[in-house]
Computed example of a mutant assay.
Amino acid sequence: MSLVVGLRIALLGTGRVASQLGPALAAAGHQVVFVWGRTAMAAQALASQLPGAQALPTLAAPLPPADVYLLAVPDAAVLPLLAGTAWPTGALVAHLAGALPLSVFAAQPSVRGGVFYPLQTFSPGRAIEWPAVPLCIEAADAEAERTLLALAHSLSQQVRRLASGPRLKLHVAAVFANNFTNHLLGIADALLAEAELPAELLAPLVRETVNKALANSPFDVQTGPAVRHDAPTLAAHHTALAAHPAWQALYAQLTTSIQAQL
Score class of each variant (00 low, 15 high):
residue 52 G to V: 09
residue 204 P to I: 14
residue 86 A to Y: 00
residue 199 A to Y: 07
residue 253 Q to A: 14
residue 11 L to S: 04
residue 65 P to D: 13
residue 251 Y to N: 02
residue 173 A to I: 10
residue 252 A to Q: 12
residue 156 S to H: 09
residue 141 D to T: 10
residue 153 H to L: 13
residue 24 A to W: 12
residue 156 S to P: 06
residue 67 D to K: 05
residue 185 L to K: 01
residue 167 R to Y: 03
residue 10 A to C: 11
residue 21 L to F: 08
residue 169 K to C: 01
residue 166 P to D: 08
residue 216 N to W: 04
residue 212 K to I: 08
residue 15 G to Q: 08
residue 70 L to T: 07
residue 237 H to D: 00
residue 200 E to F: 08
residue 16 R to D: 12
residue 8 R to C: 05
residue 15 G to F: 08
residue 38 R to E: 02
residue 60 A to W: 00
residue 77 A to V: 15
residue 96 L to N: 12
residue 66 A to L: 14
residue 81 L to S: 11
residue 15 G to D: 05
residue 214 L to R: 15
residue 179 N to L: 07
residue 76 A to W: 09
residue 143 E to N: 11
residue 210 V to M: 11
residue 221 V to Y: 05
residue 122 F to I: 11
residue 235 A to Y: 03
residue 86 A to K: 03
residue 228 R to V: 03
residue 257 S to R: 12
residue 4 V to F: 11
residue 206 V to G: 01
residue 136 C to E: 02
residue 196 E to R: 15
residue 51 P to S: 04
residue 106 A to E: 15
residue 19 S to T: 15
residue 200 E to Y: 05
residue 168 L to H: 12
residue 94 A to E: 10
residue 115 V to Y: 06
residue 67 D to A: 11
residue 8 R to K: 14
residue 124 P to Y: 09
residue 198 P to N: 07
residue 205 L to S: 04
residue 9 I to M: 13
residue 66 A to K: 14
residue 202 L to C: 09
residue 252 A to L: 08
residue 255 T to W: 00
residue 124 P to A: 14
residue 154 S to R: 00
residue 181 T to V: 13
residue 260 A to Q: 02
residue 17 V to E: 07
residue 174 A to E: 03
residue 250 L to E: 00
residue 95 H to Q: 14
residue 157 Q to T: 13
residue 231 A to V: 14
residue 56 L to K: 07
residue 133 V to A: 11
residue 80 P to I: 14
residue 19 S to I: 11
residue 213 A to P: 01
residue 122 F to N: 10
residue 167 R to S: 06
residue 34 F to S: 03
residue 161 R to G: 10
residue 84 G to R: 11
residue 240 A to V: 02
residue 35 V to I: 01
residue 37 G to T: 02
residue 261 Q to M: 13
residue 175 V to Q: 04
residue 254 L to S: 01
residue 205 L to Q: 03
residue 126 R to E: 06
residue 14 T to P: 01
residue 145 E to M: 14
residue 156 S to A: 09
residue 240 A to C: 02
residue 38 R to Q: 10
residue 191 L to M: 10
residue 116 F to T: 12
residue 215 A to T: 05
residue 119 L to E: 04
residue 139 A to K: 01
residue 157 Q to N: 10
residue 96 L to K: 07
residue 48 S to W: 13
residue 240 A to N: 01
residue 166 P to V: 12
residue 30 H to A: 07
residue 5 V to D: 00
residue 3 L to I: 10
residue 185 L to P: 02
residue 245 P to M: 14
residue 40 A to S: 01
residue 197 L to Y: 06
residue 241 L to I: 04
residue 62 P to D: 05
residue 241 L to K: 03
residue 43 A to C: 01
residue 90 G to R: 12
residue 12 L to S: 09
residue 46 L to I: 11
residue 87 W to P: 06
residue 70 L to Q: 10
residue 51 P to K: 00
residue 155 L to H: 06
residue 154 S to L: 09
residue 259 Q to Y: 05
residue 92 L to S: 12
residue 226 A to K: 03
residue 254 L to R: 02
residue 124 P to Q: 10
residue 123 S to M: 14
residue 61 A to F: 00
residue 48 S to Q: 15
residue 41 M to I: 13
residue 163 A to G: 09
residue 183 H to I: 11
residue 135 L to P: 05
residue 107 A to E: 12
residue 155 L to Q: 08
residue 168 L to V: 12
residue 98 G to A: 12
residue 194 E to G: 12
residue 62 P to M: 05
residue 140 A to V: 15
residue 222 Q to S: 05
residue 114 G to V: 08
residue 134 P to R: 09
residue 80 P to Q: 12
residue 41 M to H: 11
